[in-house]
Design a protein around this nucleic acid. Structure first.
Lengths: 207, 207
DNA sequence: GGCTAGAACTTACTCCCAGTAAGTTACGTC
DNA sequence: GACGTAACTTACTGGGAGTAAGTTCTAGCC
């Protein structure tokens, strides 16, 4: 009786199924958060049984991390491109922020997943998460080094402090914007943030 | 057979029991995180049955929030005191940061609980969490207004952006420091952060 | 076409933990 | 001593993560 209309849900090869599962998971995690999503939900959405997902992704954390890694990769690429394309160091700062906030505006469900990473502060998943974040910090640190005048040899601690600060600031701003009724546009946020930081980076103390 | 040594675990009045439960919960949440802690664990630690905790705190989130609120209150008071005691606006910024990082050094398990708040991004607990955070943002916003020159009427969006940025930066720095093998001392972090932000706040763009 | 190997997939569980209903015991008060 | 109530417990339900063991489709060979 599955003859007439509905696609009979044939078997598919592993790669295709994995992709299908990943897309469903991204959507559902994005809508309901990590806690609010059960593996049965995802399985039902894909039209597949739960153990299959376990076979492919190992655990709920594994599935979530797969979503996370993909989205974070996209975001990182977007921001890195914008930074690299900028003409000056000052412009790179603004362009990076702008790309960040625009991406999150355009992929709201992606951001929900990314924010939920706090969920994984315990467990083996935390390491993988930190790796991806470290890539961001590194990008920011590179920008910071571009901004700090050459005659001033900032020590590594200071670079780290600044990079961590910027990472934290952009993350919280992103969260704030999604929760805000009518948040200021990406351009304004990027501009304000750049104004706040540029002077400090530029005229970094020479003690 | 409970006669000789062990205290027979008499009944206690509600207030005392609540305090006892809260202290145990803070410790265990701090050690194992939200996910890693079960209500049975807490109950066993206190030497009491699980339903009693439910009677007093309503839910696991409720218990966690009670820990959170208390710790956050302490932290907020500490920072606010330092800010208010400062002689100048510039000094207030540094003093506030310093108080923040010092408190977290001195109460490491407290910070584990505070960081885990990300855990509560879903559910009714999120609102209560946001309220406490809002108090911080408000404190920072006040400081920001102190720092922005009077002739420059910064609009509310800009104040918010700056306050959110600072809040995010300090939170991420705190997380980074706890995970770092040998993090720079509070004084250095506070100093660097102040250097980064002071110029930007001070010479805020006049467009 | 028929046969077979292995990949894709499912049924039917277990265990753990948040949360609860209903009952029991200690303690202050008259 | 008896009564009322607050402190507390036993013994459960429900739901979701994770799994053992089995079943069906399909590609590739003869």
């Amino acid at each position: 009786m599955t003859s007439t209309t509905a696609a009979p849900k044939r078997r598919r090869d592993r790669a295709a199924r994995e992709r299908e599962i990943l897309e469903a998971a991204e959507r559902i995690f994005g809508e309901r958060g990590y806690q609010g999503t059960s593996m049965d939900d995802v399985a039902a959405q894909v039209g597949v049984s739960k153990p299959l997902i376990y076979q492919y992704y190992g655990s709920k954390d594994g599935l979530f991390l797969a979503c996370l890694a993909r989205l974070r990769g996209q975001l990182l690429d977007t921001v890195a491109d914008a930074v690299m394309a900028a003409a000056s160091a000052e412009d790179a700062l603004y362009a990076g922020f702008l790309a960040w906030f625009r991406f999150l505006d355009e992929h709201p469900q992606a951001w929900s997943v990314l924010v939920d990473e706090g969920m994984l502060s315990a467990g083996p998943a935390a390491e993988a998460t930190d790796e991806v974040r470290a890539a961001f910090i590194e990008l920011i640190a590179t920008m910071v080094r571009m901004n700090v005048p050459a005659d001033r040899a900032a020590d590594d601690d200071e670079i780290q402090i600044v990079a961590q600060s910027i990472s934290g600031a952009t993350e919280r701003l992103a969260i704030w914007r999604t929760r805000s009724a009518n948040p200021p546009p990406p351009e304004k946020v990027a501009r304000t943030l750049q104004d706040l930081l540029w002077q400090g980076l530029h005229t970094f103390k020479t003690s």
